[in-house]
Design a protein around this nucleic acid. Structure first.
Ligand code: MN
Ligand code: MN
Ligand code: ZN
Ligand code: ZN
Lengths: 136, 136
DNA sequence: AAGGTTATCGCAACTGTTCGCAATAGTCGG
DNA sequence: CCGACTATTGCGAACAGTTGCGATAACCTT
């Protein structure tokens, strides 16, 4: 059962707009902004509105096909859920960004689960701070 | 040396607008949004523009008098730096919010410092996830 | 293959926040 | 205290993202 069938089983429809959003995210190497996706789609389909892209990212996230992450403060970044999960360190001074394996974050997740019954998604927001070069 | 002198020593000026922002934050019990601050100030000083509030929050942050935190996704929340620091757990399903002591986050901060030379500010963004009731 | 239902669309108006600019008003030295 | 310097202001426009709405088209039933 493919994505289209799965969506129909949930009362949703597979539209050309949705297929295009998934296509762009499949080709993207890293996290992508909604604006990037919209621009990329509009290159070949100028009539497709940015608001449709925003709404579809949310719809696809509800079904679990895409997720978002917050790297810097303002812009939300999207990826397909089937791409590998990882954490981020972002320097608030120089803006540099480093990916980190989830296992570094695991002990904290386990502790929050045990002490607060809280299932943390520690990949959802980047860890903000000062990188080695900027901390001096 | 008070805040005003400190600001002047840094080439900044102490204006009525800045004093009002600090006053509102001093009276506020919890994290406050820029919009709240602006509305509160405009009640008595209608001529003060929201853009001035936004700019002043950034200016005061640069000197270390206020900090901001991201709880849910879009809205930035502000507090005076001299109010007690703490972390947050936010449930992505029901929206509930729980404060947690910084010491829970300390082991991760220490590890990031040791293994990556990264000085993490783990109070900057809330930890997103599922609370006990919503975990299904 | 056709028709009806309604999820989704494009568009335009709207939100919260940022930015450029000319006018204002803190600050400092005399 | 005054005047000069310039950081900061209010304002208008721009910005990314959201929302309401009537038109369109996906898809289910026959
Ligand atoms: Mn931030
Ligand atoms: Mn988020
Ligand atoms: Zn750095
Ligand atoms: Zn919950």
């Amino acid at each position: 059962m493919g994505i289209a069938d799965d969506m129909r089983a949930n009362g949703m429809r597979m539209t050309v707009q949705r297929r295009l959003v998934l296509d762009v995210l499949r080709r993207a190497r890293h996290h992508t902004t909604a604006e990037d996706i919209s621009r990329s789609i509009r290159a070949s389909h100028p009539q497709i509105d940015p608001s449709t892209v925003y709404r579809n990212l949310e719809a696809l996230e509800r079904l679990g096909y895409v997720t978002h992450t917050h790297l810097d403060d303002r812009v939300t970044r999207w990826r397909r859920s089937d791409s590998p999960q990882h954490g981020h360190l972002v320097c608030r001074k120089c803006g540099s960004e480093e990916d980190i394996p989830m296992q570094i974050l695991e002990p904290l997740a386990k502790r929050l689960r045990g002490e607060h019954g809280f299932r943390a998604d520690l990949a959802h927001s980047a860890v903000v701070g000062l990188c080695r070069e900027c901390a001096s």
